[in-house]
Write a protein that binds this DNA or RNA. Structure first.
Lengths: 203, 203
DNA sequence: TTCCTCCCCTGACATTTGTCATGTGCGGTG
DNA sequence: CACCGCACATGACAAATGTCAGGGGAGGAA
């Protein structure tokens, strides 16, 4: 019986290497490629055509979900999974929409991860119960398209004038969107609103 | 010859477990305790009196530097090291001031980490060259004590009135500190100032 | 000592930001 | 069709924020 061919992508060498070693100990798993960045992960996937791609959410170049989307487009037979340190509800939704079949926090053990890889390879889906609960309780973004867009522009602390220019809106309108977004998020001002929206993965 | 007794603290089980396994393969290293939070790390240190404590910088409860400080106070013979995902210059300085003897990003390999653990145990210090360079180029914080304090209170987006109350200052004074801090950091407003100060580890 | 510099602190003034009332147009419902 | 609700958009006004000029005190240099 052939082993499950796994691609491992994580920018932290310490984790990637250790993980590769541990997963390699499993009889039925085989780590065929490793990558330290989004683009590299994609290139490795093309070159090695793995059965399952295990992708870190935070990577330089392109994040895990972007890579997963691309992989699905180019290698439909390859299942994708996301592992992440600090799971934001919005990311989970984004990942599932992108066709990711496993979403796991880094707080699980390597043994458990191996089981999940097998399960995903067998065609099942797996979402960490804790993260799923968070996502459900956080619910969908209450923000409208424009609100989210403007909040995004405000994310790095830019003044309203600059946001207005970038969004091609009047300053009054921008202030309005920021205000309503803050109200929906229960924030006192736009800066805490940005923080909250980030935490929930809505920007 | 007795082996180096290592304490491993990291809230990500995936990493901690994998790392424990890999370090355990080294003949001269022995992982005698693991912890998933700051307080737990401290308790484990007290109970097992390791030779070297390898601490993650970001942990729930108390961060790696706090734990290191405490360990040094209670177990002077125990060397401490910090590993971190995203090294901020200020943290490095804070760590060194706290008597930490190794500061390593998670981008190194497990093998390299093992070498560094040995080196630290032998009495040497080790600081990742990249992080050291960052720290040097970032330099010392130009902020005065009050400026840093007020900027810290402003970090979560609180309005000036609240900051003034928490810092027991007039609102005018608070605005003044925020303003001068922003100027020193080259920021347009206090929110970008907060971001920059965070990046450099000055808050 | 005297001077100088820098940190700490403040209120008054100008600018930016947040709130409100209002208007337009689209998509679904009775 | 007429109506309702909602997203999108705006300017005027009120509130929060940033800037400025300046005073008091500690510490170091002349």
């Amino acid at each position: 019986m052939s082993r499950v061919r796994v691609l491992l992508a994580d920018d932290e060498h310490l984790i990637r290497g250790a993980l590769a070693a541990l997963l390699g100990l499993e009889d039925d798993l085989e780590v065929v490629a490793e990558a330290a960045s989004g683009p590299e992960a994609l290139a490795m996937a093309r070159a090695h055509r793995p059965d399952v791609a295990v992708l870190d959410l935070e990577m330089p170049g392109a994040d895990g979900v972007m890579v997963a989307t691309q992989i699905r487009a180019e290698l439909p037979s390859c299942r994708t999974m996301i592992v992440t340190s600090h799971g934001r509800p919005g990311h989970l939704k984004r990942a599932l929409t992108a066709g990711v079949r496993g979403f796991v926090p880094k707080t699980v053990s390597a043994l458990r991860l191996a089981e999940i890889i097998r399960s995903v390879h067998a065609g099942n889906r797996y979402v960490d119960p804790e993260l799923a609960a968070d996502a459900i309780s956080a619910g969908d973004s209450p923000l409208t398209v424009r609100e989210a867009e403007v909040l995004g522009f405000a994310a790095d602390g830019a003044p309203v004038a600059e946001i207005a220019e970038r969004a091609a809106l009047s300053q009054g309108t921008v202030r309005n969107y920021l205000s309503s977004a803050a109200a929906k998020l229960g924030a006192e001002n736009r800066h805490t609103a940005v923080r909250l929206a980030r935490e929930r993965g809505w920007v």
